[in-house]
């Protein structure tokens, strides 16, 4: 399961209006439920929010990686949001967040879940990638930058631990 295969261009969202952490997650849940019929927006939202309650998924540098398991999820689903204005996300470094990589996985795929999370983290931990993402001008460019970064990390770091 590669990360790039579960992130189609239409799930890369450009210039999303943030507002607050709750609003963004609500927005994404609604969006993903429309995009993937098997999912229920309320269910996705409550799963994402309960994960946030355990500790923010804001990993610092303005990046958050909300993630959850969902019983209605058939295969791993990724989505990316670039906000027009950074929002407070309770992140580890306290910085406001403007880049969100959301990950939903089926309940049985626990190892895949962790592997995917690790990949997302290593992609988003790269300062260059973040810079390019922040300076992307369109949805398409955003997607290209992401896919390219994912491939770069898959090639370069496949043998290295996180």
């Amino acid at each position: 399961m590669t990360l790039s295969s579960i992130l189609p261009p239409e799930r890369t969202l450009f210039d999303v209006t943030g507002g607050s952490k709750k609003r963004v997650l609500e927005f994404f849940s609604t969006f993903i439920a429309q995009n993937t019929p098997s999912l229920d927006s309320q269910e996705v939202f409550s799963r994402l929010i309960s994960r946030e309650r355990l500790g923010s998924t804001g990993i610092g540098n303005g990046v958050a990686i909300p993630h959850a398991r969902s019983p209605h999820c058939k295969a791993p689903i990724a989505g990316f949001l670039k906000l027009d204005d950074p929002i407070d996300f309770d992140a580890v470094d306290g910085d406001p967040v403007d880049l969100l990589f959301v990950l939903l996985v089926p309940e049985e795929a626990d190892d895949t879940h962790l592997a995917l999370l690790g990949q997302v983290a290593s992609v988003m931990n790269d300062a260059d990638t973040r810079h390019q993402l922040r300076h992307s001008e369109s949805q398409q460019q955003l997607h290209e930058v992401l896919i390219e970064a994912i491939h770069r990390h898959a090639d370069g770091e496949s043998s290295r631990p996180e």
């Binding site: 355990l54 500790g55 998924t57 990993i59 398991r69 626990d110 879940h113 999370l117 996180e162």
Partner: peptide, 20 residues
């Protein structure tokens, strides 16, 4: 590690989030 959890999170919820 990249992610962190609050120390007072209940194990039940943590297990639920990661399938433990």
């Amino acid at each position: 590690g990249t992610f962190s959890l609050a120390g007072d999170a209940l194990m039940r919820d943590v297990a639920d989030a990661y399938g433990l």
